Amino acid sequence: MNRVLRYTYTLRNHFKRNGEIYAETTRREIVQTIGSSLLFPSLANAVDAESINLQNGLLEARVLENVLSPPPYQLEGSDIFYPSYFNGKWDVFSTTTEVQAPCGVLLFGGNSTYARAQAEVNTSLSYKARFISNPQGIIADREYNVKEIARAAMGENAVLDVPLSTPNKVSVLLAPNGANQILKADLLTLARRSELINKCEFHCSEVVRQVIGPAKQSSNGMPGGGARSSLLKEIETASLYTAVKDENENVNEIRCRQRSATFLLPSQQDPMAYKMWEASRGRPIDVRFYDVVYTKRS
Score class of each variant (00 low, 15 high):
M276N: 09
R142W: 13
R12M: 05
Y82E: 02
A119V: 05
G226Q: 05
N177V: 14
R257C: 02
L64E: 08
V172T: 05
I212D: 06
P163C: 13
P41R: 01
Q258C: 14
A44C: 14
Q136Y: 06
T96C: 13
T295I: 07
P167V: 11
A153V: 14
C204F: 09
N220W: 14
M272P: 00
S51I: 09
A243Q: 05
E201W: 06
N45V: 08
N198A: 12
Q100P: 02
S298K: 15
I34P: 04
V63P: 02
R62P: 00
Y274A: 13
R116V: 09
L64S: 07
T242I: 04
S219T: 09
W277C: 03
V146W: 07
L265K: 08
E236A: 15
P214S: 07
L264I: 02
S239K: 11
Y294V: 00
R142S: 10
N56T: 10
D48C: 05
I34A: 04
T262P: 06
N168M: 14
S69P: 00
I149A: 01
G109F: 05
V47T: 05
A61W: 00
V292H: 06
E148Q: 11
G88R: 02
G110D: 06
W277L: 04
F108I: 08
S194E: 00
A119M: 12
Y73P: 12
G225A: 09
L75H: 03
T113A: 10
M1D: 00
N168Y: 12
P102I: 00
S69Q: 08
L43I: 13
N66T: 00
M1I: 12
I30C: 03
S171N: 10
R255D: 00
S298A: 14
G77D: 04
A44K: 11
R288D: 02
V251W: 03
P72D: 01
I34C: 05
Q118R: 04
N13K: 15
I21W: 12
V31I: 03
S84V: 09
F202R: 08
L174A: 10
E249V: 05
Q74T: 15
G225Y: 13
G77T: 07
V31W: 06
E120T: 15
T8Y: 03
R6W: 05
P176T: 05
D141P: 09
P71A: 15
Y85G: 03
S218E: 08
R6C: 01
N145A: 04
S218P: 06
S112R: 08
N18Q: 14
P284Q: 09
Y127I: 02
E247Q: 14
A238L: 08
I182P: 01
I149H: 04
F86D: 01
F93L: 15
V287N: 07
L173C: 11
F131S: 09
M154L: 14
G109M: 08
N220F: 15
L107M: 06
L183P: 00
Y7E: 02
P135H: 06
L43M: 08
N2Q: 11
D91H: 14
